[in-house]
């Protein structure tokens, strides 16, 4: 996950299920740090979906998740994500 290491710029990130997004732009307009933009791509239904273009600004506050009418996005803090990973980590086979 080297890409992740290089983009771990902010305190948190967002997860998007782009196929259920209907492009209402609630998350984009009401993100407190304006970290999201619409994608240039379309999803299968023909909607633009949110992308985290300013990852350094994302605090993982999950307000996007609370606003989303389609359950398509949510935010999380890296701190919480790391804790979760540690809990669920499986030993690496030699």
């Amino acid at each position: 996950m080297s890409a992740e290491e290089t983009t771990r710029k902010g305190k948190g990130t967002v997860f998007v299920r782009m196929e259920v997004c209907k492009g209402c732009s609630y998350c984009i307009d009401f993100c407190p740090t304006h970290a999201l933009d619409f994608s240039k791509e379309f999803n299968q239904k023909g909607y633009h979906f949110p992308v985290l273009n300013r990852a350094e600004d994302c605090t993982g506050c999950d307000l996007c998740g609370l606003f989303c009418p389609d359950f398509a996005i949510f935010g999380a803090r890296w701190k919480d994500l790391d804790e979760k990973r540690q809990k669920t980590a499986t030993p690496v086979e030699p």
């Binding site: 890409a3 992740e4 998007v16 240039k40 992308v51 990852a55 359950f71």
Partner: peptide, 25 residues
């Protein structure tokens, strides 16, 4: 843009689940 998109796809498959999903059919 595409780098960030790839990242999100990779994360979304494996990591956290949207906290509201268990409440939905």
């Amino acid at each position: 843009m595409s780098e960030s998109l790839d990242l999100h796809l990779a994360l979304a498959e494996t990591e956290l689940e949207n906290p509201v999903l268990p409440y939905l059919r």
